[in-house]
Design a protein around this nucleic acid. Structure first.
Lengths: 214, 214
DNA sequence: CCTAGCCGATCGATCGATCGGTCGTCTACA
DNA sequence: TGTAGACGACCGATCGATCGATCGGCTAGG
């Protein structure tokens, strides 16, 4: 966790640059300049460059996971539950596009040891989706997705939002999330006009989890 | 276009390494070693490292575009047309996972000048999807997608296949493509049991376009 | 003898990281 | 209250390694 202003500056700069150019495309001198520090001082606020990357990814995934749990713990209906997972995923990927871009693209830049920890965190998040889809299949409201094709497809679809979403775009964020939830539920066979999730709650949770923004 | 064995070796090595580690994560010495050449000799078979990347991306997109056109020119029914686009996209991303990974991830590694050419090619490909969805909406078989949300979502969904598909996985390629076509058509509101595209034709086209494989 | 194919040696630049330090600010004790 | 000393924040200089790229020269088949 970033605890002071300078450390926050380093993190913010790293997120922005890693998202834009990729981990290996950013040098520490460039990072230092963006954080208004010398490259030497950088090392007062981070471990190695790779550890900084892992910290950023871990932090983002932790928030995503806790937000998803917060949004679904009190829900039993699989349709509402999955709708919220999709909406939350989309909203997070729209509002925190840079962080999620780093999480989605830079796993390969981590050494095996650090990567394992991050992958475990990601798997925990995906497990929430898997369970929800399974519940829905058991209840007969979703088609079976034993092989995880739908789960993977829907996750990728939602993650793609971070690649093109713009707050100045044609579609307000709520409608975007709604459309994706709709798309997802329909693709799981939940009928042509599936129930839509509690968007307001999802937005509130995102706001709470990441602080300010939105 | 690769014209001789050595040039092909360079291309193959570059595709494999760029897909695995990212453009900036691969040095020319490493690339040379993988292609069984000295780093100096590499430059007999390529321009700069960046031009090599652009060549690879251009080549892959050109094949994808021509395959998509080949698969749809004689089709009028928007459902069949989109089903074929999705199936082709998925099959190509499964069989040519490394190439498509590079195309999807490394646009940011290109300088503006080279990037423009590649983006134009990609836009032409996406335009095929946009037109097909629009036709379907005009015919009343698809929901409207004026803002391109569904198009973008479905493209990202299909592209994600290259990230996890394995020929040793639980699902045979045909069934995978079928499931994605199904998912896509349902999400566009084409009913709960949409017609499935001519998979055999899609596979044949992929085989023809990339040669051997599959 | 020419040329295509190939390489060792090497270029200047940049990489990630570390060194020995300076500069204030804060605290503890006389 | 005065001051010695510990400390956090920060940086210029520099480390060895590697980066992408180029050079001149060797070799073998036509």
């Amino acid at each position: 966790m970033a605890v002071n202003a300078t450390q926050t500056r380093v993190r913010k700069a790293a997120i922005r640059l890693f998202a834009k150019k990729g981990f290996h495309g950013v040098g520490i001198r460039e990072l230092a300049q963006a954080a208004k520090l010398s490259s030497a001082s950088l090392y007062h606020y981070m471990g190695t460059k790779e550890e900084l990357l892992a910290d950023i990814m871990w932090d983002c995934l932790e928030r995503l996971l806790s937000a998803a749990m917060l949004a679904t713990t009190d829900v039993n209906d699989p349709q509402e539950k999955l709708g919220r997972l999709v909406a939350l995923h989309v909203i997070a990927h729209a509002v925190q596009a840079k962080e999620t871009t780093v999480v989605d693209n830079e796993l390969r830049s981590l050494s095996p040891k650090l990567r394992r920890r991050i992958v475990a965190q990601r798997d925990a998040y995906e497990q929430l989706w898997a369970e929800t889809i399974e519940e829905g299949a058991r209840d007969g409201v979703f088609r079976s997705d034993k092989e995880g094709v739908a789960r993977r497809g829907l996750l990728e679809m939602g993650s793609g939002v971070s690649r093109w979403y713009s707050s100045k775009g044609a579609l307000p964020l709520d409608q975007l999330a709604e459309r994706y939830a709709e798309l997802a539920l329909r693709s799981l066979g939940a009928g042509d006009d599936p129930p839509l999730p509690d968007l307001q709650r999802c937005r509130t949770i995102v706001k709470y989890t990441w602080g300010a923004k939105i």
